[in-house]
Design a protein around this nucleic acid. Structure first.
Lengths: 131, 131
DNA sequence: CGGTATCCGATATGATACTG
DNA sequence: CAGTATCATATCGGATACCG
């Protein structure tokens, strides 16, 4: 980011998320995909291209408003493409970009973990709340 | 849902998160770790055990309140253990449980992806907002 | 040291109605 | 079909102060 001059040598971020502002950035990115629906939508998109209402059914019970907002956020981050076909009735296709596919690769294991551990976690919560 | 009778063979949920209530559960779990700090704290804990303020420094700029709340949430889900040593001054150790270590395995790649793509995503956002 | 209690504003999300 | 606009609310999370 625009450090024009005077770099002694310090290129290597070395460990993870070293720089101060780098960590802010990483938390921003995680916050984006950490909203209620992004992970669901990315997983539902997968490697194929889907239309709006198709995606909505697959991601139920997402509301129209939230799907729209989620997709715009993902598009803003360069994770999905939005293609408008000028037909009647209108048709809009969404698909993951290469960057979005990269996200899918790391997010699918997460969703899998959540699924695998869901019932045990629910039990842990119940036990914790019981005392 | 609830195909009462006559299942020819259909045992496999095949794809991910098949059952209706299963999906709710999965979204609950994802919502938990999708808050602002859980991923950071889990990564900072890693395989070692840390004290409260130590963790707080490592997770800066988290507030005391949020670290406390985040840790309690993770403990509730059976992802971290909380060990109180009755010394003076008090000392409390936190560590990931086996289940928490499992989460770490899938969350670390996610954090790595966020780090790797942070600047490009920031640029995409700027470009999107510009128009 | 390791918290909890309280207050409060920002944001995320849902419900509903309307549109090209 | 694929959205947007508006309103209401719940929750998140920061600041601050106090406690054992």
């Amino acid at each position: 980011m625009a450090q024009p001059t005077t770099e002694p040598d310090a290129p290597a971020p070395a460990a993870s998320a070293a720089s101060e502002e780098g960590r802010d950035l990483v938390r921003d990115v995680l916050g984006r995909i950490g909203d209620k629906w992004s992970v669901v939508v990315v997983c539902r998109l997968g490697g194929t291209t889907r239309r709006f209402n198709e995606l909505r059914r697959l991601s139920a019970p997402i509301t129209q408003r939230m799907l729209s907002a989620t997709l715009r956020g993902l598009e803003r981050d360069g994770l999905v493409t939005r293609t408008v076909h000028d037909t009647k009735p209108p048709r809009v296709d969404y698909a993951l970009t290469p960057r979005g596919l990269g996200l899918l690769q790391v997010v699918r294991p997460l969703a899998g973990w959540a699924e695998d551990n869901a019932t045990e976690i629910r039990d842990s919560r119940a036990a914790f709340d019981a005392r």
